[in-house]
Design a protein around this nucleic acid. Structure first.
Lengths: 208, 208
DNA sequence: AACTCAATGTGACAAAAATCACATTTTACC
DNA sequence: GGTAAAATGTGATTTTTGTCACATTGAGTT
């Protein structure tokens, strides 16, 4: 079991792995479940060991804007910096493939930062990577029109799932990009005509 | 002099202040100067002691999208997590009011994180705050139309400068929001009709 | 086979934003 | 005081995006 942890988080030291195993609470979630809601208090740092989690920013009117995926071997950056205060979550996290996560009490965060060099580097690295990912998301909405935003979105999905057959409905894409299904349908059709994708029911084959 | 540092960064411990003073390189920049360019290697952590710095995300076609301000007592979050590797800057920072900054070699970052609790908390807090600020920026572009984005933008300017008379041209606002001057001029006119602002040449008086 | 429901296609139209083309107004500076 | 440059105002037009209203298609169920 600790072998598995080590495989998922190869940078972690043996001592850190031991510490995690001594304190972890493992939780399982099924597809569709919401792990974290906007405004909910964060009590744990979340390490993903199985499945896929989608992280969203929500607005007041029920809009859900897709930010990034959490996959095995990754951690929720925001759940790592709520150290001292009772901070509320600024994001919503939804499971899209049955997931298993390790919950580590926030109180241990600070301690491990000092004691485990590999934890410190993991946290800093996680933060940096997420920040940069979010900056790219900003690029796409600030600088690009919807057609390019869609291409960017599809590319990220391919990266995340590691395959070129995306199981996504036009409705879901529209919702993730905060636009309407019709717009997505039309843009996808254009992309198909350009030979960039092949459309099937509930599946988009990426040819780029 | 160390009194001044202490005043700007009240959470810093005396020992940390001493360490900073022993290692700092102070640099001055005039309005208009660019402190950091996109793609440039980051060698220092930047602490702002005077002036105002605007942080932008750039695109390939010369677009500059305004992200946030750096004011005295604050630090560039991104310059704090490039620890080990030779990382390139993902943002551009431009001085808008003559500024003085303290450059701390990145090599000291890790050391201080372990040695100074107050530095550790400052770094984590800086990171968290910037992340949240960036999330709000995402909200505004992902969920809101240009009229609301403009209001959000103006509110942030008021917060940053601490006054209600903003010295901004319509062109600059348009550029910051990645839209055209005409759009901004028209929206501002509408806001003036609604009694939210009063327009002058090179100055916008905020009445909200 | 008939039915239901989710997913997708599509035309028509409205609204928002971008672009173009000038007019007007200040300000700064010879 | 005259002039150039910067800042702002505004109409006309196009493009992009959002919305509405239905048609069609396909998959699964009974």
């Amino acid at each position: 079991m600790s072998d598995q942890l080590q495989k998922l988080f190869p940078s972690f030291s043996k001592e850190l792995i031991q510490d995690i195993k001594a304190n972890e609470v493992i939780k399982n979630f099924s597809s569709g479940e919401i792990i974290m809601r906007t405004g909910q208090y964060i009590k744990n740092t979340v390490l993903v060991t199985k499945g896929t989690i989608k992280v969203y920013r929500e607005d007041d009117d029920g809009g859900e804007f897709f930010m990034y995926y959490l996959k095995p071997g990754q951690a929720c950056a925001l759940s790592m910096v709520c150290a001292t205060k009772n901070e509320k979550s600024q994001i919503m996290a939804k499971v899209v493939e049955d997931a298993e996560v390790i919950m580590v009490p926030l109180s241990l965060m600070d301690k491990w930062m000092m004691e485990h060099r590999s934890w410190y580097e993991f946290v800093i690295g996680t933060y940096r990577n997420r920040f940069e990912e979010v900056l790219e998301v900003i690029d796409s909405i600030a600088f690009r029109a919807m057609d390019e935003r869609l291409e960017f979105y599809l590319k990220r999905q391919v990266e995340a799932c590691g395959c070129k057959e995306l199981k996504l409905s036009h409705q879901e894409i529209g919702s993730d990009l905060n636009t309407s299904r019709e717009v997505i349908s039309r843009l996808l059709k254009k992309m198909e005509q350009r030979g960039l994708v092949k459309l099937h029911r509930n599946q988009i084959e990426i040819l780029m």
